[in-house]
Amino acid sequence: MDGSNLSRQYKEFISDFRQWPQLDHAQEWILYKHNIGSVVCIDETVLSCGELYTVVTNPSGHGGPGTLIAMIKGTDAETVIGVLEKIGLNKRKTVREVTLDLSPTMMKIARRVFPKAYLTNDRFHVQRLFYEAIDDLRITYRWMARDQENEEVRKCRDNKEQYIPFRYRNGDTRRQLLARAKHILTKNRVNWTESQKLRAEIIFENYPDLRYAYQLAQELTDIYNSRISVDKARTMLARWYDAVEAMDFGPFQTVLNTFRNHYQTILNFFVNRDTNAFAESFNSKLKAFRNQFRGVRDIPFFLYRLEKLTA
């Protein structure tokens, strides 16, 4: 059987694609007003050739029918707002919570479109931001180790001596130690292997700033994992914030600025402990669906098929 011919027959004759009510504007947006629920997730995804689409979903649909609320080409706030405002205001006022990442654009959309909802910034994006700051610190030390090694090589060359690199007790050179520390610094210590435990011990002995930053990362995880009230979380996060201020390194200042700018939406996690994980999961399903068809050549037809599965 000719698969291409079958696909063409399905598109043109078997399915009702040509009578699809959203066909005229599917290239730009699709909207399913009836799928809106009390909790809404907003995220962005790459659909084809780097083209970004804003995706609005209802997590109570669990990825099946009733999940997809809207897909809108691009991430321009005014464009997305214009489409979502096609949903009646009374219906939009029934949304009590919107989960999203730290994107200012997505927060602007959520505040304008869902006036009665509170915004919850995803905990994993907040934690990832801090881990990225730790990794920047690790990379800075690695460049310093590279410079030190180059200087040692130069001195040995000038003195016509054989260069023998310094090695720690686990056999790593300075550069190797810091290169191999990347995954250790993002894992909980209970998940370290024996070799990773030794490597972490050496790292923390020689780079106390990395030890301090890692401890703060674990403290933030413990705060998020604790079943505590919003008021208790506010106090614990304030203490954690004060501790981060002691880190005299640029990327940690970015973390502090993010907390200052989005403090309330970060704190809102502790109301219902909702995350934007469903939106990430839905994006993964989109990518798997896209890969199944070896990419997206016909966006309207792809979205038509997506509607049959999720809308």
Rank of each mutant, 00 (worst) to 15 (best):
Q218W: 14
A181C: 08
N90L: 11
T54N: 08
M107A: 03
I184K: 01
L84P: 08
F269G: 04
K308S: 00
L210C: 12
R180T: 05
N159K: 13
S4V: 03
R138Q: 11
E194R: 03
R199Q: 12
T94W: 07
L137D: 04
N58P: 00
L185Y: 02
T173A: 09
L220Q: 13
R92F: 13
Q22M: 14
M1N: 02
A288K: 07
M144Y: 02
R211H: 08
P115Q: 14
N257L: 11
G250R: 11
T193G: 05
N276L: 07
F278T: 01
L31N: 05
I164W: 00
L198I: 06
A77G: 12
T235L: 13
G63H: 08
D298Y: 11
D16G: 03
T254F: 07
L256G: 01
F249C: 06
V39S: 11
D248I: 09
A279N: 13
K197W: 02
R174Q: 09
Y141D: 07
I266P: 04
R174D: 15
P104S: 12
E132L: 07
W29P: 09
G74C: 09
R297I: 01
T193D: 00
L267I: 13
L306T: 05
V296M: 10
L306D: 06
N170E: 08
Q196N: 01
A213H: 02
R138F: 06
M71C: 10
D231E: 10
K187T: 07
K93S: 02
S48E: 12
E44M: 11
K197C: 01
Q127G: 11
C156Q: 07
H125M: 03
Y263R: 15
L306I: 13
N188Y: 04
D248K: 14
T45W: 00
V55K: 02
T173K: 14
L6I: 04
K187C: 12
T265F: 07
I109V: 14
F204H: 03
P251C: 14
N159I: 01
E151H: 13
D2V: 06
V95E: 02
V46A: 12
R174C: 08
D222M: 02
N268I: 04
G88F: 04
L100V: 12
K160Y: 11
C49F: 14
N206E: 03
T105G: 10
S60K: 12
Y214W: 00
H34M: 01
T235F: 15
C49A: 10
F249P: 12
T186F: 01
C156G: 04
R123T: 00
R123H: 06
E245Y: 00
N188G: 04
Y263W: 14
E194H: 07
L306C: 02
L178F: 03
R157Q: 01
T221N: 14
I14Y: 15
Q253S: 15
D274K: 14
W240N: 02
G61Q: 01
Y141M: 02
L198A: 09
V113F: 03
K232L: 11
L47D: 08
V271E: 00
F17Y: 15
Q215P: 00
Y304H: 10
